[in-house]
Amino acid sequence: MKDDSFLKITGLSKSFGGVEALSNVSFDLKQGESLGIIGPNGSGKTTLVNLITGFVKPDSGKVFFRGKEITGKRPYTIANLGIARTFQMAKAFHHLPAFKNIIIPLRSPRVKTFRGAQYGERDDIAIDLLEEVGFERDSAVPLKTAKSLPHGYLKRLELARCMALRADVIILDELFSGMSMSEVASTLPIIEKLKEEGKTVVMIEHRLRELFRVVNCLIVLNFGQKIAEGSPAEVMGSEAVKAAYLGSEE
């Protein structure tokens, strides 16, 4: 196993009915690194996540994880290999109580091998995880059905579901969008802690200040193409990025 390329994608392309959502994007990520992906809306960021995690099959290009090809594998297979993701639009199980939402990933084959989490015990693990992402333990919040939770909680529920998988790569698709400033402030340390634990974090984010506190390299997408790559300082200095991204947005 060649550990130097931990998560590697080469020449990934995908078009939807003639519109090229992503064309020929590559990157190489080492274990423990963290990557930020930015770009204007519709630049293919979410498509990239969908391609890596198997929710969409690429037209061409390959995805490697720990040196093994995982292109076109099913989403649950990829999740079990250790790549977890959140969804941009929070996808909670609306009819289940919040903590029961976390039990579902706890039943996955991956987590079962980590801890012998048995029936009943899983409830406690779930509530612990929710506390970690800021659900007040002794309040009624973890017991409320997901549909009654405010948006910020749903996003953090996504994060908790991701953490429950104990994945090595955590892909956060615009986690902070729709969160209040204080929620962002309290969620950021959790992500930093995940990084300290050695997790590889991939973040798609519009809030650049928070993003730069976490990531040490950055990719900029525009119209499905990678227009810049490097450290945040390098990238933000590049003329191409200024023109394409910052210039067009402001």
């Binding site: 995690t53 929710f55 099913r74 989403p75 649950y76 297979t77 999740a79 079990n80 977890a84 993701r85 969804f87 996808k91 909670a92 199980f93 609306h94 009819h95 289940l96 029961k100 939402n101 039990i103 579902i104 990933p105 706890l106 039943r107 996955s108 084959p109 991956r110 987590v111 029936y119 899983r122 579901r161 429950a164 998988l165």
Partner: peptide, 25 residues
């Protein structure tokens, strides 16, 4: 009512999220 049933109820709600949870729906 068991955790197994929870997965089934989750699938009815949102099968993508169940897959993201590493479960072969």
């Amino acid at each position: 009512d068991s955790d197994y049933g929870l997965v089934l109820r989750g699938m009815m709600d949102n099968d993508q999220a169940v897959m993201a949870g590493g479960i072969n729906i």
